[in-house]
Design a protein around this nucleic acid. Structure first.
Length: 212
DNA sequence: ATCCCGAGGG
DNA sequence: CCCTCTGGAT
């Protein structure tokens, strides 16, 4: 098969190869329900999944339901999530998120992206994670990895994550968005590192404009 | 010094 | 558009 020359052609080829390499790519944030995933994803801002997974067992044990989290003592909550960074704003956001869940969404995590992004601490990336992972609905989370790899691979030139999301979305069917995002993240962590990409070990090197 | 599954506020 | 928020790992 010839080298894809267009961004769309490359995107389709990248998606196909990554699906072969990481067939069972899953969200690595520990969670048992949509509420826990939502909380874990809020904590994941500028923080590794591994670090989030170190605090969430305590968090979920202490605040099992939106009602419990809505009533949390903010100092105690800050202590539990402190090591994930940005802990003051994250604590405030978790309480605000849970409060809105209780009072405006009947204690349930909404599925609509516009509803999700109304919640404190929930932006487009977090909303799309919850939609795609918890509800198996169309959602293309663009985090730092997805943005970086998409640009290196020549799938987009946009820096704005929302623009990246919309450009990538045109290249693939909505049913594949979630897995594509997960696989780019996994590949970004294992091979296409932000500081020292290991192009020699990359299965995409022959179609990557940035490979050296 | 730079990066990690960002989001809110000015 | 910019800035700020934060700890931990490399």
């Amino acid at each position: 098969m010839g080298k894809p020359r267009s961004p769309k052609g490359r995107a389709v080829e990248v998606a196909s190869r990554l699906a072969g390499e990481y067939p069972g790519a899953e969200c690595e944030l520990t969670h048992r329900n949509p509420f826990e995933l939502l909380a874990a994803t809020i904590l994941s801002a500028q923080c590794t999944d591994a670090r989030v997974n170190m605090v969430t067992p305590n968090l979920f044990a202490r605040y099992p339901t939106p009602q419990d989290l809505a009533n949390a003592d903010i100092s105690e909550l800050e202590g539990i999530i402190r090591s994930t960074g940005f802990y003051q704003s994250k604590a405030k956001n978790l309480i605000g998120m849970a409060t809105k869940l209780v009072h405006q969404f009947g204690g349930e995590v909404p599925r609509d992206l516009d509803d999700l992004t109304q919640l404190a601490g929930v932006g487009r990336k977090t909303g799309n994670v919850v939609r795609s992972v918890a509800f198996n609905l169309p959602g293309l989370p663009v985090d730092t990895h997805v943005g970086r790899l998409s640009r290196r691979l020549g799938l987009t030139t946009a820096e704005d994550p929302v623009k990246v999301e919309h450009e990538l979305g045109k290249f693939l069917p909505p049913t594949e968005w979630g897995h594509f995002s997960l696989r780019l993240i996994l590949h970004g962590r294992r091979v296409c590192d932000a500081r020292k990409p290991r192009c020699g070990d990359c299965l995409l090197a022959d179609i990557c404009p940035s490979s050296r």
